[in-house]
Design a protein around this nucleic acid. Structure first.
Lengths: 152, 152
DNA sequence: TATTGTTATACTCTATAACTATA
DNA sequence: TATAGTTATAGAGTATAACAATA
């Protein structure tokens, strides 16, 4: 190795964010592989379980994905019997995405595996530090002065 | 909107990391677009500027990319006259990647734009909080007990 | 006119395997 | 036998535009 301490001179917080995120996604993906789910579909299922009835537009906003991508992801959950599309009573353009009993059970199972894998990623951090990190990230990922700026 | 508070019930720190990272990359990409550089190439150039002589393997480790991807990225920097490959004197398998004067000037220019764009992303955080975040992320992205685990 | 869901498509990224030259 | 760099390629992920139905 020519430069042994390359990594230690890193200051760029943007790169640090990207590297930490990549580690988290990799760990979650590995944990989810046996269930044939990827990290994005897991997060989508989680949103559906927690909200129980969001429109696809809501899901696109929550995950900062293009609505056209939500279509395929919800299709997959529907094909596996984990979610269903229901016409929204108030606005016939909307489709409410609801979790099925089977989907709720499945989520409970895989969630334990995912959280264990994230524990590994956060192993060096105390409980307090994890809460700090979560709070700081929340203010970056979901600023109070909303203004979603997926495309600009 | 069916569920107004979807975003606020988010606990998943893995998703928060991914969203925050995506915001950072998007902001940096936007700032770098006029210079026809993407976030990854910027980080690569930064490593070369800071280390001045890393092997391509070093760069792959620092950015957690596959060595085969570094080839194309270094090619691009070389084509634009920002970096050069030099045979390493100690081991003829290695190629030391060094920044050119032109590359150093270019980096200084775009760096200001990137840091300004990251300021926007971190706007809600105080100086102390940014330092906290950087420190926490560093311990996730570059754990002391190294063991790079790109592929496993 | 604007918005939701949808389809199709092109583009970028990423992962993987195989090869060479050197050690 | 192992490592650095390289090439090629297939797959996953992403962005974009256009359309029908509804508001």
């Amino acid at each position: 190795m020519i430069v042994p301490t390359l990594g230690t001179m890193l200051e760029n917080i943007g790169l640090l964010l990207a590297l930490a995120s990549a580690r988290g996604v990799a760990a979650a993906s590995k944990a989810l592989a046996p269930a044939e789910l990827n990290a994005r579909s897991y997060s989508l299922l989680e949103q559906i379980v927690l909200a129980d009835g969001p429109s696809q537009r809501d899901l696109a906003d929550a995950l900062r994905l293009d609505p056209s991508q939500i279509v395929a992801l919800v299709d997959q959950l529907e094909d596996r019997g984990f979610a269903e599309r229901r016409p929204a009573p108030t606005d016939r353009r909307l489709k409410a995405v609801v979790v099925t009993d089977q989907g709720r059970r499945f989520y409970a199972q895989v969630r334990a595996d995912v959280e264990r894998s994230l524990d590994d990623v956060l192993a060096d951090l105390s409980r307090d530090e994890r809460e700090q990190l979560r709070s700081l990230l929340h203010r970056i990922a979901r600023p109070e002065s909303a203004a979603p700026e997926l495309v600009d």
